[in-house]
């Protein structure tokens, strides 16, 4: 199948496709940030995307979530063409993401951050909130409770009324994931979730990722530089360099691939 390694287990191959990117190409003016990028992800998989700095990984995420409109190519999510849709509709269809450089609503409380992501599912309208109808009160209460559950999972429950910007860095990263989950996704895109974490924190994060995947039946596509995390949790990995895919395969295969080593360490490393 296009955009997948050959040697995955038949059991995985039998699952339905959730995300199918084909021939994705994007130019910033004359800079070719992504070129002919194809990846197919099946439901429930945990796929990694790695590559040296500036390879175009974040750009791929931005293209999936509709931040930019690609120059060419197609992105299908559960069969629906995403290109041309506004970001918020893509998110509402069930794709959520986090940001490489944290983008929380820094002046709002932790709980608000999660509640905002719930907004499309709030279930009440303008009139309900202006007249404080019963539906408003019920739904609002339910929303808050659901959000608090998320915060509990991420160990943020007791800080729900803190200002998000005042949290320590590690907690902010977690809050970003919590917020992403509150949009009720089926596909989660994580952009360098372990950036700036120490090894213990990375171990915790790995467990957390596994946990949320099982708990919310997620498919996860993640970008990461920390090999410790990628090699341990990803089922298979795509490597890109200068916007193009240079390798894909199981972690141990990728690790030994000379092209990958070259991309990361330069030509000298091979000689």
């Amino acid at each position: 199948m296009k955009g997948r390694p050959e040697n995955l287990s038949p059991e995985v191959e039998a699952r339905p496709v959730i995300l199918e990117i084909d021939g994705l190409t994007h130019y910033f003016d004359s800079l070719r940030a992504v070129h002919d990028f194809s990846v197919t992800i099946k439901e429930g998989e945990l796929v990694g995307l790695i590559g040296p700095n500036g390879a175009g990984k974040t750009t791929v995420f931005n293209l999936i979530t509709g931040v930019y409109r690609p120059t060419a190519g197609s992105i299908r999510y559960e069969g629906v063409q995403l290109i041309g849709l506004p970001s918020h509709e893509i998110i509402q269809m069930g794709i959520a993401r986090t940001f490489q450089n944290i983008r929380l609503f820094a002046n709002l409380t932790v709980l608000d951050n999660v509640l905002i992501a719930y907004h499309p599912h709030s279930g009440y309208g303008l009139a309900d909130s202006i007249f404080r109808s019963r539906r408003f009160r019920e739904r609002e209460k339910a929303m808050i409770e659901r959000s608090q559950e998320f915060l509990e999972i991420f160990g943020l429950a007791d800080r729900q009324n803190d200002i998000a910007g005042s949290l320590p860095y590690g907690l902010q990263r977690r809050l970003e994931i919590a917020r992403a989950l509150a949009t009720q996704p089926r596909l989660l895109l994580l952009d360098e979730p372990a950036a700036g974490m120490n090894p213990q924190e990375i171990d915790q994060l790995m467990e957390l990722i596994h946990f949320i995947r099982d708990r919310f039946q997620l498919t996860i596509f993640l970008v990461e530089h920390r090999m410790r995390l990628v090699m341990n949790i990803c089922e298979w990995i795509t490597v890109m360099d200068f916007g193009e895919i240079i390798a894909r395969g199981k972690p141990e295969e990728v690790r030994g691939n000379p092209q990958v080593i070259e991309a990361y360490l330069g030509r000298q490393a091979i000689r």
Partner: peptide, 24 residues
Amino acid sequence: HSSTGRAILSVREDERAAELVGID
């Protein structure tokens, strides 16, 4: 003080991020 209000605030805080958590 409603969900819509929080969505309005989120636009002030970070429009792009708001868009990317599904806020129109």
